[in-house]
């Protein structure tokens, strides 16, 4: 089904490489968006599209942090807590989000809207504290800005806008 639905996009990806296997990461991103996560069935489907042994594809999904083989919310909120962010407000931001979303980092809110994660450096250290929402950057997210940000994201979901947990349509 995935191939039928995204034939043009997948074919375009395949055309870039002399080896089908190279298309694995991009095709997994498509599958992840299409199915909301990479469960076993979708991983096997991708393997079949690319003629790869199942195990090889599971291996790749397991290795990279941007492939989610567990349930995630509509938005994955990644807060950088690395040096230097952790000394520039990241801890406060995580604490604030945990309190507001009523989940610990690493978990998904009950309404399946947000998954909160601590992540390592995302190359925006001068803008700390910083987070990515579905891989879109939000800079200088001091706790006072959090309510508006969350509201914004919720509204986006309600408005039916295109949501990509893989960041395929990321704007900034």
């Amino acid at each position: 089904m995935l191939y039928e639905k995204y034939r043009d996009e997948i074919d375009a990806i395949l055309a870039r490489y002399p080896s089908k296997r190279s298309a694995l990461l991009p095709v997994l991103y498509i599958a992840q968006d299409a199915y909301g996560r990479l469960d076993d069935a979708s991983i096997r489907e991708v393997a079949e599209i690319l003629d790869l042994p199942y195990t090889d594809v599971f291996e790749v999904v397991g290795f990279y942090t941007l492939f989610y083989n567990e349930d995630v919310g509509k938005f994955v909120l990644d807060v950088c807590d690395d040096v230097p962010c952790c000394f520039c407000g990241a801890e406060e931001l995580v604490a604030d989000l945990e309190q507001r979303l009523k989940v610990k980092a690493g978990y998904t809110t009950d309404d399946k809207m947000f998954t909160l994660r601590r992540v390592k450096c995302i190359a925006a250290c001068d803008q700390a504290p910083v987070l990515q929402a579905n891989l879109e950057f939000h800079y200088k997210v001091t706790p006072d800005k959090v309510p508006a940000l969350l509201e914004d994201l919720r509204r986006k979901v309600e408005s039916g806008a295109q949501i990509s947990i893989s960041g395929r349509f990321a704007e900034h």
Binding site: T55, F58, E59
Partner: peptide, 20 residues
């Protein structure tokens, strides 16, 4: 028969087999 592989990485790296 490439039927064995690894899941995760780092210290959580582990052998898996997902063939059918």
């Amino acid at each position: 028969d490439p039927v064995l592989g690894f899941d995760n990485r780092g210290r959580s790296w582990m052998i898996i087999s997902k063939s059918d």
